[in-house]
Design a protein around this nucleic acid. Structure first.
Length: 118
DNA sequence: TCGATGACATTGC
DNA sequence: AGCAATGCCATCG
């Protein structure tokens, strides 16, 4: 099974799982780091999920990181996009209203993988 | 190869 | 009730 997975070509990293879950987020909806972490087991700490978003830039597939915000609905990672407005514009383009770097009606647009995918 | 960093969340006092 | 510190995985230099 795993005598020495040192030469593993593609170990199922936690990041890969996060990227997949984020990809499942429908347009016009938003999710949070803690929720995704909890959906994956909540044993990694919410932080790791946020790092996965940054690593999304290195993912083979496109990851709608603009649909992922912190627990307060704040666009924390907007500064990590191509432009600090790319995230807000992307959300508004999908019908999500953003004011003061915060998602309006965030609680209503909230998308829980453990519930919606149930 | 080793050390430090990095898009949050939760608990404790 | 509010403030502070810690935990976590992976990638970068």
């Amino acid at each position: 099974m795993k005598p020495t997975a040192q030469t593993a070509p593609k170990p199922r990293n936690f990041f890969q799982d996060v990227h997949e879950v984020v990809r499942l987020i429908p347009a016009g909806r938003v999710s949070t780091y803690g929720t995704i972490a909890h959906y994956l087991g909540a044993r990694h700490g919410a932080r790791t999920v946020g790092y996965a978003m940054m690593a999304a830039h290195t993912a083979d597939q496109y990851v709608p990181a603009h649909r992922v915000v912190n627990r307060l609905g704040h666009l924390t990672g907007r500064l990590h996009f191509a432009t600090p407005f790319a995230m807000q514009e992307a959300l508004e383009a999908e019908g999500v209203r953003v004011e003061e770097d915060r998602v309006v009606e965030f609680a209503r647009l909230f998308w829980d993988p453990g519930v919606e995918l149930a």
